[in-house]
Simulated scan of single mutants.
Amino acid sequence: MTVMAERPTINGTEPDSFEGLLRTLDELDVPDGYQAEIIRGNIVVSPWSKGYYTRVMRLVCQQLEPHLPEGHVIERAPNPYVFPGDERAYGPDIHAAHAKALETADNHIDGEALCFVAELTSSTTRDDDLTDKVEVYGRAGIPVYLILDMQEEQATVLWTPSAKGYESRDTRPFGEKLSIPAPFGCVLDTTGFRAP
């Protein structure tokens, strides 16, 4: 095990095997208050969000739920979505997918089932949220990726997924309104997203 300040990682226990990492992830006894993801060939264990992040996640879900594509649900549960082509498994802070994709006994959900993801950055996850996840979510064809940069207090929406990530983006400071493109076609009011 390699430990990085508040962010331990475990190198793959079965050499060069994403499936081995997934099995290890499933068997991992993650301490209360932490979540585990597979990022760049490592299992990364990060602390859960600060208390007020729950308020922000609830506000996002309340505003987007009426605009979900038919048959889709939006959740804050830490479901692990898998991106085998990129050898990644992420547990987005907020995710929307067709309800049928969640009707599985499997621990791993197909990342391509997502129509929306949102990540709330923390000091330990910010770099991956702004770089690695942008590329992976875009390559997977997820139509909308919302980054709530809690350190800079700004919201960035990315859309038009491509092989390089996303072709379109818009950033607004917390407190302003942000247009969320198709398949939602609505406006997100970021009032109430700031730290207490």
Score class of each variant (00 low, 15 high):
34 Y>P: 13
59 L>R: 12
134 V>F: 06
89 A>P: 01
3 V>M: 09
135 E>G: 03
110 D>I: 05
44 V>H: 07
180 I>H: 04
60 V>N: 00
194 R>D: 11
77 A>T: 13
4 M>C: 02
120 L>P: 02
104 T>S: 13
196 P>A: 12
33 G>W: 11
189 D>K: 08
50 K>L: 14
97 A>F: 04
103 E>T: 11
143 P>M: 10
26 D>E: 15
159 W>L: 01
155 A>K: 03
56 V>M: 07
69 P>F: 09
68 L>W: 08
71 G>Y: 11
25 L>E: 00
162 S>T: 15
13 T>H: 08
143 P>E: 04
23 R>W: 04
177 K>M: 09
164 K>T: 15
77 A>M: 07
19 E>H: 10
52 Y>P: 11
187 V>G: 08
79 N>C: 01
75 E>R: 09
24 T>S: 12
127 D>Y: 12
46 S>H: 00
145 Y>E: 08
174 F>D: 04
11 N>G: 10
153 E>P: 06
134 V>C: 03
100 K>H: 05
125 T>L: 10
87 E>R: 14
166 Y>F: 14
176 E>G: 02
104 T>A: 02
64 L>R: 02
163 A>E: 15
46 S>P: 04
85 G>L: 06
119 E>K: 11
165 G>C: 05
50 K>C: 02
103 E>D: 12
165 G>M: 09
87 E>C: 14
154 Q>V: 13
75 E>W: 01
65 E>I: 02
117 V>H: 04
61 C>G: 06
126 R>K: 15
